[in-house]
């Protein structure tokens, strides 16, 4: 028995060593840094221990702005992207002929580089001395006056960021949802059809509960992914996100470590821990809510 235990641990060793070294140790380290005031990487020194880092971060207007941006992004993009993905997946499942073509088209953004996609969005939305951009052209047809979506008012920039984020995260969700829809046994639909169930009722009473585990997975990973947003904002607004008012929490952490105002690992650590706590809380809430609505 003892022998077996030893063997078991030996088999687990690679995974434990890897995860411990690259996941658990840094996590604990970040927690320690976040309580060490004025930590310096080069000299590995700090002034004292306490909650000052948290207090500073929570009073920093840049952090508060990043917090606000992140929350807006999460609240708008997670439900919308999940809803659109669901609609598109249901649509894809009900067509036969050119389904593969559409599936490929919808999946393209997933294999396209974030920055390349950002460039395309710039062309769509950016105002230059020579052109108002494609979006403004279309809006102009409906009588709207041109808006600078990239360097203009806050809501315009936020709109673009949300559209961009939704567009980027949808392919993965569509892929997962179409396979989930395909895995629902045809026989349930036949049973419902025999009983004269309307299409809408079939969808809400059979399809949705059947794919609820997948929906739940997508919503949780969607929340976590959206809270960690950063590269999308950079792709659209460049690296100076603070002056563009479009910074996110991860962006703030990055700035604190390496940006113009860089060199403050303690503040960065504190911000990272705050983000961790937020994500943990939201995930726990999700888990609690899901118990009622997810059928395995």
């Amino acid at each position: 028995m003892k022998n077996n235990n030893l063997k078991g641990w030996l088999y687990l060793l690679p995974a434990i060593a890897f995860l411990g070294l690259f996941m658990v140790y840094p996590l604990i380290d970040v927690l320690i840094y976040s309580f060490e005031e004025g930590f310096n990487f080069a000299s590995q020194t700090y002034f004292g221990v306490g909650g000052y880092n948290y207090s500073y971060v929570l009073h920093d207007p840049y952090f508060l702005s990043a917090l606000k941006n992140t929350f807006i992004l999460v609240i708008i993009t997670v439900p919308l992207s999940t809803l659109f993905s669901l609609l598109i997946s249901v649509g894809l499942s009900s067509i036969q002929k050119i389904r593969n073509l559409f599936q490929t088209i919808y999946f393209l953004p997933y294999v396209t580089n974030t920055l390349a996609v950002g460039l395309v969005f710039m062309i769509l939305f950016k105002q230059t001395p020579y052109t108002n951009g494609l979006a403004n052209l279309v809006l102009g047809w409906f009588g709207f006056s041109p808006v600078d979506f990239i360097a203009g008012p806050y809501w315009a920039k936020m709109t673009v960021l949300c559209i961009y984020t939704i567009w980027v995260v949808m392919p993965f969700k569509i892929l997962i949802l179409t396979s989930a829809l395909a895995s629902v046994d045809e026989v349930y639909y036949n049973a419902a059809k025999i009983d004269g169930t309307s299409k809408f009722r079939i969808f809400t009473k059979i399809t949705l509960p059947m794919i609820s585990p997948t929906m739940f997975y997508l919503i949780i990973t969607g929340f976590i992914g959206a809270f960690k947003a950063y590269s999308d904002a950079v792709a659209l607004f460049g690296i100076d996100l603070n002056s563009a008012e479009m910074n996110t929490i991860v962006g703030y952490i990055y700035d604190m470590l390496y940006g113009n105002s860089g060199g403050y690992p303690s503040f960065a650590s504190a911000a990272a821990i705050i983000l961790f706590v937020i994500v943990l809380t939201i995930t726990c809430i999700n888990l609690l809510v899901s118990k009622k609505h997810v059928h395995y």
């Binding site: 026989v187 349930y188 036949n190 004269g196 169930t197 009473k205 059947m210 609820s212 059928h295």
Partner: peptide
């Protein structure tokens, strides 16, 4: 099928797994 007034019992029963027996019957 819905206008024919037939009841069909499937080979693997096709009971909706997320509904209770009562909900299955009242469906």
């Amino acid at each position: 099928p819905e206008n024919r007034g037939v009841g069909l019992v499937f080979q693997n029963y096709a009971l909706y797994p997320h509904l209770t027996v009562l909900q299955n019957i009242t469906f």
